[in-house]
């Protein structure tokens, strides 16, 4: 049984992982779509873009998949990438990651080209440097026993945040080849991307196609979405709180436009392969959490869910993220008393 402190630390790590992953995806996208001076012609990228596997896919033929990043360097070359900031310590679970790479390593449909297919693509697994060497040893052992496990179009790239005079994300290829000579050469030597450039270009992007830890979502709602409505809200003297009426769909739309899929808007025009994040179900889940914690009440209609938030400033000296982490741990512990076992971080939607 984890102590409160251990749970708090684990949640903070999870939040940190999530934030670093968003920034790392953007930084790596820049490496692929840029030539160092400007954006390459016919380049594009999408986070969680819906791609379709071929009929020859050995894992999941003719299926839609949503890799963390699809980055098209040109009309002839692109990279599909999956990011693992944290990795299970148990190597047995790493088989799933290899299976995922095998699934992605295919003539995928869904590139920003007329026929949706690209001449050459690679699949990259991006792993935090603390785990990359160990994972590569494991991968090599698997390949020794099964030489056809992965094709030549797979590679492992490690990444890390380095804090020198400025903060950088640095990427270096540790295993496999990239079938674009320039990218292959530069990633072999390591490519640094200043974090400031990521913030400057997509400083608003806070989510990707993966559910954030609950306290992070609650923090964004409590520090931004709800306060932005207080000028129109009624202040309830008895509750000592603003009563803010909101619908799930409008909050989802705001968060997607401000901090999610619509904030990317690289091509300017979303197409039917773009996925939406944060998802409506995540927002609904977060609002239900507020109801369960006496910070909102719920009223439902046939086609949507509406809530009245009881919004107030928390104690001045308290960090809001820490406050929601504490509350979430208490909430989970309460749940655990009632239910036999609920995973702290992956509460079902």
């Amino acid at each position: 049984m984890m102590t409160k402190e251990e749970r708090s630390r684990a949640l903070l790590d999870k939040i940190e992982d999530y934030e670093q992953t968003v920034k790392a995806i953007l930084a790596f996208a820049a490496i692929v779509v840029h030539d160092g001076n400007r954006q390459s012609p016919n380049s594009n990228f999408g986070i969680g873009r819906r791609m379709t596997t071929s009929s020859n896919n050995s894992i999941a033929p003719n299926t839609d998949i949503t890799p963390d990043l699809v980055a098209q360097h040109s009309n002839n070359y692109g990279i599909v990438a999956e990011f693992k900031k944290s990795l299970s310590k148990d190597p047995e679970q790493w088989h799933d990651i290899i299976t995922q790479i095998r699934k992605y390593n295919d003539s995928l449909e869904g590139w920003w080209i007329d026929n949706d297919q690209i001449q050459t693509s690679d699949t990259a697994l991006l792993i935090h440097y603390t785990r990359s060497r160990k994972f590569i040893r494991f991968l090599k052992e698997q390949i020794e026993s099964n030489p056809d496990l992965l094709t030549q179009n797979s590679c492992v790239i490690e990444f890390q945040r380095s804090d020198e005079r400025m903060t950088y994300f640095t990427f270096r290829k540790e295993w496999g080849e990239i079938h674009n000579e320039k990218l292959n050469n530069s990633l072999r030597d390591a490519v640094p991307v200043p974090l400031e450039n990521v913030v400057k270009t997509f400083g608003n992007l806070e989510f990707y196609d993966c559910r954030p830890p609950m306290p992070k979502l609650l923090q964004r709602l409590w520090q931004d979405v709800f306060p932005s409505r207080i000028s129109e809200a009624e202040y309830d003297e008895e509750l000592k709180a603003y009563k803010i009426d909101i619908g799930v769909d409008e909050v989802t739309e705001e968060l997607q436009s401000g901090y999610g899929s619509k904030a990317l808007s690289v091509s300017g025009v979303p197409d039917d392969r773009d996925v939406e994040f944060p998802r409506t179900s995540w927002i609904r889940n977060a609002l239900d959490w507020l109801v369960a914690n006496d910070l909102a009440i719920k009223s439902s209609t046939e086609d949507d869910y509406y809530y009245t938030i009881h919004f107030k400033a928390f104690r001045k000296s308290k960090d809001i993220l820490e406050k929601f982490i504490e509350m979430h741990i208490d909430y989970i512990e309460e749940q655990e008393k009632d239910e036999s076992q609920i995973d702290l971080f992956e509460k079902p939607e």
Partner: peptide, 28 residues
């Protein structure tokens, strides 16, 4: 992340390079 409770404005405030502070606006 700073929320101005006087009117509900929100900002992300970064001090990344040594010579600059970035103030990135939120919804309001």
């Amino acid at each position: 992340k700073i929320t101005d409770m006087q009117d509900g404005s929100c900002f992300n405030v970064y001090a990344l390079p040594p010579e600059r502070i970035a103030v990135i606006p939120g919804l309001k």
